[in-house]
Write a protein that binds this DNA or RNA. Structure first.
Lengths: 221, 221
DNA sequence: ACATCAAGATTGTTGAACAATATTTATTGT
DNA sequence: ACAATAAATATTGTTCAACAATCTTGATGT
């Protein structure tokens, strides 16, 4: 990679607006299933309809929007089946990550740092931050594979999962129990105990999936 | 730009042309790294430049095109690092598939059928078909996970891999030895011997990756 | 309440235009 | 002749206005 992030202001409009809308989607500014009118969005973001359509094309391919021919673009509304699928993907990829973990990998250090930060954030009752840090923790875990494609794919499902969180009102209890679990998982990995680490990961995923599903069903039951 | 006769294609133009170009890319009709001029392609496919740009956006997000700001869209040219990464993804996902395999899963039947077809194709010396069937075989394997997202992600890397094959002149020897390996793998899975199946899968992937890398390096000295 | 059908609105696609950026060509200095 | 530089040209990025195709709405009649 010859490109470094940081000082290149010269992004294309499509990239910029895509990032903006993506951020809005992930932070729950739109309601799932809500229709995004081309005209309205275009004028709202001060871009042309054609450019916006390129943005929609991108976000649809990332699973954040659902494009229905002749009807338009809608905010993706992941349901229970989607959540189950997302956790299936997480299970496969993250198990692969645990098994690929080599001692001394930089991603491990990052995981430790993120786990520590999460404890600090909990102490401050900053649950929004705890959630973000938890995501970053698992993102770092996948970096253990040293595979750009795997990381990119994982980012997609993680973004979809954040969309789900956007649907739920109170996400604090969704992250609280997992701070400790992350640390336990890390310790197993640090010790090179893959079997124990896999078990801890599985425990985490099952537990997390259950509570997300429960919260989702509660929201509409 | 005469329209093809046939049933009512309710697809959008973007979807249709995307599929067309994707097919052309995968079958090696374009040279890797080749620049795809907007004007030329637009008139060649009889669509407007704006529509073509949506197509490029899509194919870029799928890794088949590389988009460089202000310079245009280029046919992706996967190098050795990309091949290594692709096989890393395959390893993670397909190991997950083997472990997720449940006896009697419809995908297993499909794998048997594809393996049989591959043997027929080999008897006919139809190596192009053998290659396609081999891809389908592994695609079916991932279906064992029953995860649309995992299958979709796998399709992406498989498409990229086909792009690599497009760079190589003679792909016959790339597929020949693997027909038998696939059958062996299947037998292990059928018997529920996950450990043996994983070993067979790993053998396949390592061998396949090596020959692809070798062919790629041979191609460029 | 129900189906029908005509506006009205929205998406799908096009062609032309223009600014910003790349690429090519011509020009200059040594 | 050669490298550096400037001008000319081509390409991409983006917008706008238009129109056909499709969807949505609402009025109408039964």
């Amino acid at each position: 990679m010859t490109n470094k992030p940081g000082q290149d202001d010269e992004q294309s409009l499509v990239a910029k607006i895509s990032a903006d809308i993506r951020r809005l989607l992930i932070s729950g500014e739109f309601k799932p299933g809500e229709k995004l009118s081309e005209q309205q969005m275009a004028s709202q973001f001060g871009i042309s309809r054609n450019t916006l359509r390129e943005v929609f094309r991108l976000l649809s391919s990332q699973g954040l929007l659902t494009h229905i021919p002749n009807r338009g673009a809608f905010v993706a509304a992941p349901d229970e089946a989607d959540v189950i699928d997302i956790y299936r993907v997480r299970s496969v990829i993250q198990k692969g990550a645990v098994q690929a973990a080599s001692p001394g990998h930089p991603a491990l250090a990052r995981m430790w740092a993120l786990a520590a930060e999460a404890e600090t954030a909990r102490a401050d009752d900053d649950w929004r931050r705890v959630g973000t840090l938890n995501m970053e923790f698992h993102r770092a875990m996948v970096e253990l594979c040293d595979s750009p494609r795997l990381s990119a794919g994982f980012d997609l499902v993680l973004a979809e999962l954040r969309l789900v969180f956007g649907q739920l009102e109170d996400t604090s209890h969704l992250h609280e129990p997992y701070i400790a679990l992350n640390v336990t998982l890390l310790e197993h990995m640090e010790r090179g105990d893959t079997v124990a680490a896999l078990a801890a990961l599985d425990a985490y995923l099952v537990k997390s999936e259950r509570s997300v599903l429960a919260a989702l069903q509660r929201r509409r039951g």
